[in-house]
Design a protein around this nucleic acid. Structure first.
Lengths: 210, 210
DNA sequence: GTCTATACTTCGATAGAC
DNA sequence: GTCTATCGAAGTATAGAC
């Protein structure tokens, strides 16, 4: 692919990510995406079939990346508690790299996935699947109490996503003196610590040799 | 207010709640709201000034109700751990009564609160404020370890909202054999249990007399 | 209070020149 | 590959009869 085309495509994807995160699929305006990408609308439609395809491309890439990284952690040989710690850190890292993800995820969840095709939905499902493998391993080995893997996933991913996506509204409430602030790093620490305690078995085992 | 008007207004509010929850503010169509309410569009604009006012009215009512109930729990004389339990149960109850809330909250958080006026934002802020009072009391009395009240709130409200709002997409993933299911009651139990463990002090105190 | 009809605007997408 | 101009559909909101 020629360099110029690649540049345009990346500009469009970055602009679309920002627009979709801020406004959602229905609220996003193709004109605004083109303007933000500094290309005209016809150029956008030259590279991408439709608003929907642009949207799907963005999410599919992120889901695949998240899934790959999480699977690598799950397949490692660390203790389950450490894998969970690493998984939470991995979510936080991914969000730092793909700042549009939290907002887009909240919106797509609320939209029941209607904008996603089969392939993108499958990529999405790979994330909880990989995380659940970690939890199941920990439960089986006695490192965790008997927690439901999917519930465990949701109690972790929801706060992390929600915290990041809610930064703007929390900032606004802060400016109105209606809410105090919490730093992102402190929040991730809180989740890390809370999850370790929440998953710990009633009579903690001595860490087994591996 | 005449009975007929009241009926129309309630029909419109109920229809709007469903439409906004399914599609979000930008995706919601006034025509669809009117059709769902079985009134025509002019009737809707007779009772409500605009799509936006309808939206705000819905959320302000829910926020105020949530805030009132939570404040009642916070002001009670139960032990902090029990107040937290009651608060989580109260969130679950409110959601059962206002099924549109989880989805609308996710969307509004992603939208940074742009559709809300000052009054509605203040009502929203009352919810974490009331919950934080419970946590602060528990931390002060030694019933909880030193958790940040706002972080504590987010780690509870996010999973509860996310779980409910994600029911449709999880069901779809289940139908595609990409994810297994979890019952709502089981999930609330998981949150209850996890939070008690996450908040517990390192050396649990004997329950103090009051 | 309730309706039909429609004004006015904005959007996604495309045509066609270069 | 990139542009300007524009089409047709769909949206919010209102006018005005009853």
């Amino acid at each position: 692919m020629p360099r110029a085309a690649r540049v345009s495509q990346d500009q469009i994807l970055a602009a679309a990510a920002a627009e979709f995160a801020e406004r959602g699929f229905a609220g996003a305006r193709v004109d605004r995406i083109a303007r933000r990408a500094r290309v005209n609308k016809a150029m956008l439609y030259y590279h991408f079939t439709s608003k929907q395809q642009l949207y799907r491309t963005l999410l599919r890439r992120s889901f695949t990346l998240a899934s790959t990284r999480l699977r690598a952690i799950a397949d490692g040989n660390a203790a389950p508690a450490d894998k969970v710690r690493d998984a939470i850190a991995a979510f936080a890292s991914l969000i730092r790299e793909h700042a549009f993800l939290p907002s887009m995820m909240l919106r797509e969840v609320a939209d029941a996935g209607v904008h996603l095709d089969r392939e993108t939905l499958a990529a999405l499902a790979g994330v909880p699947r990989a995380f659940a493998a970690i939890v199941a391993e920990g439960v089986a080995s006695g490192a965790f109490r008997d927690v439901d893997p999917l519930s465990a996933y949701l109690t972790i991913i929801a706060p992390v996503i929600f915290f990041h996506a809610s930064a703007p509204i929390r900032q606004q409430l802060g400016a109105m003196h209606l809410m105090s602030g919490t730093a992102a790093a402190d929040f991730v620490d809180h989740v890390q610590e809370s999850v370790q305690r929440a998953f710990a078995p009633d009579r903690p085992l001595r860490r087994s040799t591996r």
